[in-house]
Simulated assay, not measured.
Amino acid sequence: MSDAELTVRVDGPVATVVIHNPARRNAMTPAMWRQLPVLLDGLEADPAVRVLVLTGAAGTFCAGADLGDLDELLAAGDGSIAVAAEERLTAFGRPTVAAIEGACVGGGCQLAVACDLRLAAADARFGVPPARLGLVYPAPTTRRLAALVGPSAAKHLLFSSELVDAERALRIGLVDEVLPAGELAGRVAALTATIAERSRLTVAAAKEIIDGRADADRLAWWHAQVRDSGEAREGVAAINERRPPRFGWTPPTTH
């Protein structure tokens, strides 16, 4: 393993991407930003993968982006490799869960917000530091943060660059659950196992609709999938027969 890279492991239906850069508290280097969309493409092409977990190595989620090449960052604006990676993570076709310990700052917070769900250990700390650096936070990232926590909380984070603890993050909606020390991994495993057992059709459609990516034609397509797949009949039969459902729908390669 190199000092700075993203690693992937797949355990049954759950894929885990680990941010690994111990010398910089798991800061994302340019190579790592470019690596993420490639990894996501490969995982999305694997029909066995039903849920994705994003986490950091050695008790730290991600302390931000490596700002070594400031000129490149300034020239890129909203077209940066970080924004491209964030957008690819947001568009990933399976549910995504950020498992957060320690620092979740800057680019790390950007990645966490791009996930569908965020579970945090009690020691997690969150911050959005552009105002300390004289940078303009990317517009897609700013809008995504504001949609998640609301305009006022987003302004507080962006205007002050203050770190907030896990309990405050929970109150403002930045995270979904806060777990005591040592319990995060177990809760993430339980939640992802539950999601993996649910109807892939329901989960995929819900993600598209909530994210605003399903127009009228797409909604009609989803309802046709329900009618044609037998998924709902299987779900009802499983309840009536008091057994686990045997859902069989898989995402088509084209539609």
Rank of each mutant, 00 (worst) to 15 (best):
K155Q: 08
D3K: 05
R50V: 05
A45I: 06
R227A: 15
C62G: 09
V18R: 00
G12D: 05
S2I: 10
E234A: 13
D165G: 15
R200Q: 12
A147Y: 02
E86N: 13
L184W: 06
A103V: 13
A82Y: 05
I195M: 15
A27M: 07
D228M: 03
V203E: 03
A205Q: 10
A154V: 04
A98M: 13
W221K: 11
N21V: 04
H255K: 07
R200H: 02
A190I: 07
A206W: 13
L133N: 15
P138K: 08
V83N: 02
N240P: 04
V105H: 07
A206R: 11
C62Y: 01
V149H: 04
M1R: 09
L43H: 02
R143S: 14
A122S: 14
F61G: 12
A114W: 07
L54D: 03
H255A: 10
G248K: 10
H255Y: 08
R118S: 11
T16P: 10
T29W: 00
A206H: 09
C115I: 15
F92K: 05
V226Y: 15
A169Y: 04
A154I: 06
A63G: 10
V226G: 05
A99C: 01
A216Y: 01
V53H: 05
R200L: 10
R88H: 02
A121I: 06
L117T: 14
